[in-house]
Computed example of a mutant assay.
Amino acid sequence: MYDIIKSNPIFDGVSEEQLKKIFKKIHYRIIKYSKGESVFTESNFKSSMGIILSGMVEAQKLHYSGKVIILNRMAKGEVLGISALFNNKSYYPSRLVAKNNCKILFISQEELIKIFEMDFNILQRYLSFISDKIYFLNKRIEGFTYESIYERVLCFLENERERQNNQDEIIIKYSKQELAEYLCISRASLYRVLNELAKEGLIKWEKNKIRYL
């Protein structure tokens, strides 16, 4: 468990020994979810930060047409529920659903404050994590301001590359159809732009991986 927690940027640099000491002093819950089960809904959620110990969780939004839009996918080691913390909102901005069988560790807002009091560096990393979230959200919004589909796809790929530490090869968590819906474009348009980028010698793509050339 602790090696997974350490992989999250909020706890980066904290030794396993220190983590064990911290978690002995707080209350936390580990909950298992079956595939398709709701973790959070817009009206039923916990004021807690979750760390995915296994499996994958999908953030979804129901479109007025009845279509489900995938906002994000979070895998082992990633954090969820940040939007439910330190505010007085009575609703959660999206629905979180188990993409497959998963196990999540939950730390309540009160217990999280205790962790911050025990280790100020964790508080600093938490604030940095929130700042990064806001930064990438703004970058995503920027992508939707582009009228050109080519620019919108390119903006998404550049943002993903930055999110994945500027690796030459990035992993896309979505199928082509899901990515097209995420970008609010048709699947045919997405394929056309990816083919254009490949012909220009900028990328090489196959399945869920894109390599920058």
Rank of each mutant, 00 (worst) to 15 (best):
L96R: 02
S94I: 10
K103T: 07
I70S: 01
Q109R: 14
H63A: 00
C102K: 05
P93L: 11
G66I: 05
N100Q: 15
M56D: 04
M74K: 12
I107Q: 01
I107V: 09
L96H: 04
S47K: 12
V79I: 12
Q109N: 13
A98I: 11
A75N: 08
L71N: 01
V97H: 01
G66D: 06
G55M: 14
M74Q: 07
S83A: 09
E58V: 13
M56H: 03
M49Q: 11
I104Y: 02
F45V: 15
H63R: 10
I107A: 10
R95C: 03
V57Y: 02
I51G: 00
L105K: 08
G77R: 03
L62T: 04
N87D: 06
V68N: 02
G55E: 02
S108G: 15
S65K: 09
P93H: 07
V97K: 02
S48D: 09
K76I: 07
A59W: 02
L105F: 08
A84G: 02
I107H: 03
L62Y: 01
N44P: 00
K76G: 06
E58M: 09
N44D: 08
K103S: 12
S47F: 10
L105V: 08
Q109K: 15
K67G: 00
K89P: 02
E78I: 08
G66H: 04
Y91R: 14
L71S: 03
G81T: 06
E58F: 04
K61V: 02
K76W: 07
Y64W: 10
H63S: 14
R73Y: 00
K67S: 08
Q60N: 02
N44W: 01
L53T: 04
S108K: 15
L85S: 14
S108D: 11
A75L: 13
K99S: 07
N72M: 06
S90I: 05
V68F: 01
N101R: 13
F45D: 02
A98W: 01
I82L: 10
K99W: 08
S48N: 06
F45Q: 01
S108A: 03
I104Q: 04
I82H: 06
Y64E: 15
G77S: 06
I69Q: 07
N101C: 08
L105D: 05
K61Y: 09
L80A: 07
L96M: 14
V79G: 00
V79L: 12
N44V: 07
I104R: 07
G66F: 09
